[in-house]
Amino acid sequence: MAEPLLSVRDLVVEFPTRRGTLRALDRVSFDIGEGEVLGMVGESGAGKSITGSAIIGLIDRPGRIAGGEIRLRGERIDTLPEDKLRRIRGKRIGMVFQDPLTSLNPLYTVAQQLIETIRTHLDVSEREARERAVALLDQVGIPAARRRIDDYPHHFSGGMRQRVVIALALAAEPELVIADEPTTALDVSVQAQIIDVLRDICADRGAAVMLITHDMGVIAETADRVAVLYAGRMAEIGPVRDVIKAAEHPYTSGLMGSIPTLAQTADRLTQIPGSMPRLDAIPQGCAFNPRCPRVMPHCRTDQPPLTPRAQGRQVACWLYAPAGAAHG
């Protein structure tokens, strides 16, 4: 297998607090291939956003990366000093956040913000940058881009703003775009448009995408592979179709059963009892064991390792791991 674009190995993120250290991510590992769309799902608090922040080196103090490594094309980026990291953010890794309002500066026109971003990272003239900016806006589906480029962000609707944010993230032609809940704040009809734009434009430019969302439907439509996080740990990772149609991890299959669908006929939804534990109360062994219908005695004592399965899938569950292969 060729070297992946991004490789995350045994990533640990901790938040020291007065009542002890919270482990927000516990030995999370995954790869993103060239031009691939990796979906990252999980319930709120599972650690999706933290994973994204760790990759771009923006973990809120006093949180810190306490272990593992992150490599972009083989080069370690988790240990880089801040000034080098800043050059990677925006240039090689673009970002799209949930709330389009907070990612745009209300005091500058869209043109100013796009041109500045382009010229910070690429060596082009003002005129050329402007041309590129117009082309970008056109690509993300802003009608009459040439006329609207000199408007301020508040002149745009929520969906249009999110398109501008996507344009901004792509302005420096990054190799990877991290999109954290890019459609959560939007209406369904607008969400569908934004998903299309994100998928198409990244495919055009060969940029890989890490798509963070809690919405399995969005993942199903957009991603090539999906990683399921639970309580800061990787539960399952594999090709989207396989994971959705035939989940192996008991958590993933419970999750799939609990999502109401348009085709659904059952009277009751499958429900997983209880809820995801808080970070300060993660049970010993498998984090899912108190809610798991297939729990076994050693699930309560040993943490299952991420075990390779067919079709490049990986599952962290004792049902699929040789006994005695405890994690760490």
Binding site: V188, V190, Q191, A192, G217, A220, V240, R241, I244, A263
Partner: peptide
């Protein structure tokens, strides 16, 4: 209805919203 993401992965081509 067309805008709802297709969890069934039926490969349905939906109309553009």
């Amino acid at each position: 209805l067309d805008a709802v993401p297709d969890l069934e992965m039926s490969g349905r081509r939906r109309k553009r919203v």
